[in-house]
Design a protein around this nucleic acid. Sequence first.
DNA 1: ACGGGCGATGCCGAAATGGCAGCACACCGT
DNA 2: ACGGTGTGCTGCCATTTCGGCATCGCCCGT
Lengths: 314, 314
Amino acid sequence: MHAAVLRYFDHVARHGSIRKAADALSVASSAVNRQILRLEDEMGVALFERGRSGVRPTAAGELLLRHVRETQNEYQRTRAEIASLGGTVSGDVRIISLESMLVRFLPQVVDEVSARHPKVTFTVLAVHPSEIGEALRSGDNDFGVLFVDARHRGVDVIAEFPTSVGALMRPDHPLAGRKSLTLTECVGHPVVMLQDRWLLDAIMAMEFSGSGARLSPRVVSNSIEFMRQVIRSGLGIGFFTPIGFIEEIRRGELVHVPLAEPGLAQSRIGILVPRYRRLSPPARLMINHISERLGAFADFLAAPPRRPKRRNRG
Amino acid sequence: MHAAVLRYFDHVARHGSIRKAADALSVASSAVNRQILRLEDEMGVALFERGRSGVRPTAAGELLLRHVRETQNEYQRTRAEIASLGGTVSGDVRIISLESMLVRFLPQVVDEVSARHPKVTFTVLAVHPSEIGEALRSGDNDFGVLFVDARHRGVDVIAEFPTSVGALMRPDHPLAGRKSLTLTECVGHPVVMLQDRWLLDAIMAMEFSGSGARLSPRVVSNSIEFMRQVIRSGLGIGFFTPIGFIEEIRRGELVHVPLAEPGLAQSRIGILVPRYRRLSPPARLMINHISERLGAFADFLAAPPRRPKRRNRG
DNA sequence: ACGGGCGATGCCGAAATGGCAGCACACCGT
DNA sequence: ACGGTGTGCTGCCATTTCGGCATCGCCCGT
């Protein structure tokens, strides 16, 4: 329905190069080039600055780009809305997520929703914390399952669940018997750390500003799965929300000791949506389901059992 | 930039007929028809119900229609934004207004803004009160200069000015010497009325519910200009804001006696914008100017002088 | 100096678009 | 009963637009 030039323009801006964009679009670069030139002629201003290594949007280009992307997003949402008129929800849901949610919790939710609504497709991306704001505000994603942080602007929290960041370790670790820990108490014990530490940076700076002591990470990685194996093999303590390690904790393979620092003990995971954005039917569906499942985990999120318990299953 | 089918689709929905739309678009009806058919094929659902006297959007058509119109509006706004990058503001401002503002106040403001910003064009429409909500929310208009009314939903008031609805009459009218009036006191005197009475209906129902007395309009019209002449010739009392009769009141040709009814004495004129709508540069410009000029009239709006005064002009 | 990247352009075939005339159907007034 | 008029729809054809290929001129790194 929408003119091809919208897609062309978007791709050119993304790739910073007409030829790259044409390649990604599987059309001749000359075709893309001419569409851009025609568009600039129509607008009466240059939309790109031609550099030696490609193109870069001008101020006018940025403005038009925002309109083009908003149009494409709204079109997808409208298509999903129309397709869902028949009763069966369909369309794509785009979610950005904490990696810890992504490796254990979300796959299950996606599986359940997917089974009941086979025409819904899912795009679930782990995002670097520094990109959360942009990822949400760009409109490319429907919502995020993230730590609630007052620093986020232009974002609405439509559901939130308390959780606690804690020290994750083997049951035979010296600190495994504690009911809570401060970061200072972890000094001296080897720790493993995510490369993007998110909350920890600020807290650690505060905690150790006087003593000069520091946690010395023995292992640093950006992969939660790698950390999981490292912690299970006893290489050190990791700092995580329990949500990504539900099974290990339940089976008693790992122990989660909440941190006493207020900013960490009272962490909240929330569903965040760009403000003023209309949600597509599949996005609403998915949000409902996630809220429901997170609600069922509420006790576990806030204070996971220290010893595995048998639970009745329905 | 945008595909022609957007305009076709919009026109067909507006005219309720493919041939009428094609006529308005100055293209062959077959072309429009094929575009609509192709669009329905692309969407996979019927967008119009074919009746014997034309077409009517289906539920899916309504959804797509909203997207199409929003896209067109946003495109215009974006173009205005880009055109204004060069320093000179340009683009179209679409304003809906009380008729009383439209006949005296707004022409002057438009004249001033137009003189300073020759590339700005203006669309100023008087709207029937019953259509205000729809006219604002449709996104077809940038803002409204209207009575502030809590009944409006999805509308933000970004500036407001107190005014008072009052009885407008010749200086030689028996009631012209009063400092304020109730509607009941007007019973027995001939009155003239706008056909769309807006605020008056509710107030009158309340005022006269006990007594059974009624104002008997001698003249009813939907034209303020007609009312102006009728009142000046002494045919009766009219009920208006002073804003449309500034000159007559200043020259002493008419007298404005505020009504004592709280709902009318405390009326407010405001600049109303659809919530969450981004304003185009010319719209922002126009709003600033209107606010400034209305602010200068603030004393006059709330309590116009009973006798003409000489004022210093800058 | 040269090769490889970039955007822009001329040429040509393919695809899309629009105009014209005509079809089938339903309504309305005579 | 019957044209007249309105509707949406459909072949047929001219025109316009679009895309692919090859090429040019440019700049940069090697």
